[in-house]
Write a protein that binds this DNA or RNA. Structure first.
Lengths: 182, 182
DNA sequence: TCCCTCATGTAAGTAGTTACATGATTTC
DNA sequence: GAAATCATGTAACTACTTACATGAGGGA
């Protein structure tokens, strides 16, 4: 998963390890952490496997290593990204896949987003059933805060569903946050 | 962190490993995963350290092991939970701490929630600055989906802030999801 | 001159997953 | 009688974090 994300960063441009880390952080850094102790060995491994090429360049006294995906790298990346949504492996970190989804042709992309949407709506339905069975009155402190975590999950799922519906239609992002209430 | 969560589950009642896993999953299972290959060794370790007691009981032909926190266990748990909010260690998984927050006296609890709120609002402010500098027109497919991930983070942070404000005041949970738009 | 960012790497240790392994109880 | 759930454990492997280690470049 992390390997695919790395390959996905260097499909169209040469980047250094440092750049790759920054790009990931700028996009999904609030929800996905990368340490450089994880990244540099991964770059080595992916280069050895033939999924990346490495191109050393001197800049002043600094030796920089620029990486880019090979054809083999692009192929395994697209295989991974094209695969149908699987709650077991994609349930967490679906955000990573969506972050990269622009690399897929529109038809496949839409299909994948429909699967994500279906999945989140199913989950939401399950939480709605649970929610109806809950008693939210006369709660102890303990119960109040335990339940608050449930409501947090519930809210998150609602908003995720809303977001997927929005981007599935590729509606303009500028209006995304304003339209919360519609 | 996981260790404290486990101790937190058995402060007031004896539970089996299996029960502990279920309780965690029911509360925060959508956002925090527990494997039993992680739990059973942890129960052993925490018992060896003197933070839990273990009490074996035969039920039919099944040997069940009931765990409960010792005074030492309760002490380290409360130390951990009472500690001021630290973005480095609590930034992720603040949900775990809030899940257990009912164990703290109201004053400390409120102080901790104010810290969480302050932190999320600061982050939100940062994202607002970034958002204003973004151009969201004439995006390539690639750029559209990369940015969509940014907006997801943004939305999440907005909702988290809203949620923290809500539970800080201990307002009735039943009304939480309805009041999205106010 | 100092500090921050850029830039790359290793290595020890920690944590976690997955599969292996087994068997009882309950529900349909 | 089959399937799902209850119940506990180990062990190999994988992944990740953290600290160690080094140094250049740019701006105040």
């Amino acid at each position: 998963m992390f390997d695919y994300l790395v390959i996905g960063m260097v499909l169209h441009e040469e980047l250094t390890g440092y750049d790759i880390k920054k790009r990931i952080e700028q996009g999904i850094g609030h929800l996905y952490k990368v340490s450089h102790g994880q990244l540099y060995p991964a770059l080595k491994k992916l280069t050895a496997k033939g999924y990346l090429t490495m191109n050393e360049q001197m800049q002043g006294k600094m030796l920089k290593k620029y990486y880019m995906a090979t054809e083999a790298g692009k192929a395994v990346f697209l295989d991974w990204l094209s695969a149908p949504f699987d709650p077991n492996t994609d349930g967490d970190n679906y955000l990573v896949k969506i972050f990269l989804l622009g690399e897929l042709p529109k038809e496949i992309r839409t299909k994948r987003l429909q699967e994500y949407e279906f999945y989140t709506q199913q989950l939401l339905g399950q939480l709605q059933v649970v929610e109806k069975q809950l008693s939210t009155e006369n709660l102890s402190d303990r119960e109040y805060f335990e339940l608050s975590a449930f409501y947090f999950s519930y809210q998150l799922l609602q908003n995720t569903t809303h977001w997927i519906q929005y981007i599935k239609e590729e509606r303009p992002l500028a209006g995304f946050l304003q339209n919360e209430g519609d």
